[in-house]
Amino acid sequence: MNIFRLAGDMVHLLSFVVLVLKINATKSCRGISLKTQELYTLVFVCRYLDLFSNFISMYNTTMKIVFLGTSFAILYLMRGHKVIKVTYDREQDTFRYLFLVLPCALLALLIHNAWTPFEVVWTFSIYLEAVAILPQLVLLQRTQNIDNLTGNYVFLLGLYRGLYILNWIYRYFTEPHYIQWIVWISGIVQTILYLDFFYYYIKSWKNNVKLALPS
């Protein structure tokens, strides 16, 4: 494991902490897209199907369980918690799941490394993760007065993907036969989706003004 990979995972973990903190501290999930959270949960469920059948390391297994557990906990807070669920921006969070799930499923059926159920579902999770942030970005654009924690949450998610790209570059040069086209291209697409957000996030941070995305 290299430093970029570890930093990427820690930033990803931190993004969950920030999100749970925001929801719990403010008792509100305003500005958070339930659709993105549901898509991420689907991503983790599909990707970690081999959780108990393919042991890689304690680190790997622990992180997978934490990601899955936190994702379901966030879904519970947003859908089941009686105080928090009423703060959900249902009317604004209108992105259609099918526009993301269907193309990713078709692409996974067409482009994958092996024609096995596990491999196709795993590939689907890679494609879906790349675009799962879109409902959240659309909701941010519609949200007036984005709070700091929500902005930081999305920034950390983007930063995690950026660090993974550095990890892949490092691994490509240090490990023999390390070629992962599906993961790389999806990861690059995923990172590109954040570029516009990064621009406004850094601008608001430099000018010390509240984050607002132009609609």
Binding site: R5, N54, I56, M63, N113, W122, H177, Y178, Q180
Partner: peptide, 10 residues
């Protein structure tokens, strides 16, 4: 081997 290594990322 390569096959198991390729799923070591989260």
């Amino acid at each position: 081997d390569d096959e198991s290594n390729d799923k070591d990322e989260l």
